[in-house]
Amino acid sequence: MAAGKEIKSQIGSIKNTQKITSAMEMVAASKMRRAQDRMAASQPYAGRIRRVVSHVSRANPEYRHDYQIEREVKRIGYIVVTSDRGLCGGLNSNLLRRVLREVREWRDQGVEVSFCALGTKGSVFFRKYGGDLKAAVRSLGDAPEASQLIGSINVMLAAFDEGELDRIDLVYNEFVNTMTQKPVVHQLLPLPKSLDEEDEAEDAEQDDVSSGGWDYIYEPDVKTLLDKLLVRYVEAQVYQAVVENIASEQAARMIAMKNASDNAGDIIDDLQLQYNKARQAAITQEISEIVGGAAAV
């Protein structure tokens, strides 16, 4: 009964795989909860600063910061946030495919492209893909600190300041809910005209911010202040994106591992059925041989 034995050992090995995937599923579930907490914790700051910056962009100052001025795009920089590890379904490949689609569109218009990869998967990908990789951070970990990102952000901002980059976009996976994560592309710099439509609607009701023709009182002076505020804004947005991407990663991994465990279960059931059939066939054959032998005697 050689077939029976083979099937038995195959079942054993799939059971082991299933144990691993279901353990990974549980780990991902608990990490996802923590990542969601972190996402919720840093959300107020990112939201607030976006609101303030959108007010600033609707104010009417004599001075406009470089980050607020649209210029002709000759080279665009992408800050691409990916996960450190794989086994999280199509999360990274969907995101990178989205990036490449954008890149093709820009190249068709004769615009060159640079990248900044946050997360191991992205840095590995862009090393193979080629292109101008300006900065990369590997091994962000589960709880990245803003200080890990500042170096790369500064490289991109410096390139923007020097006029090498004319626009910076941020790409990451938006955490819609546990089942859905969506790659999104946001324009970071120059500051888009409307940052937050919901917010603008709210302000329009109160109608004192939306109407132009007013300006802030700045302390110390408008230049120093906007310099600091806008750099902080970019850092906050990138940090938020990284934290959100980690929550997405864990959710995607949880779902991927749940599917893997379920599939392993299905395969085990099939193999078990095959095994039982083979065993039954062997027994039936043995009995008929015995019966045949007894009849011959």
Binding site: H55, A59, V209, I217, Y218, E219, L225, L229
Partner: peptide
């Protein structure tokens, strides 16, 4: 306390941005 000194803010204050 802003970099220029302490200040109090009431409702209806002029829009300001301070460090």
């Amino acid at each position: 306390v802003s970099v220029m000194g302490e200040l109090g803010i009431l409702r209806g204050h002029e829009p300001s941005l301070l460090e």
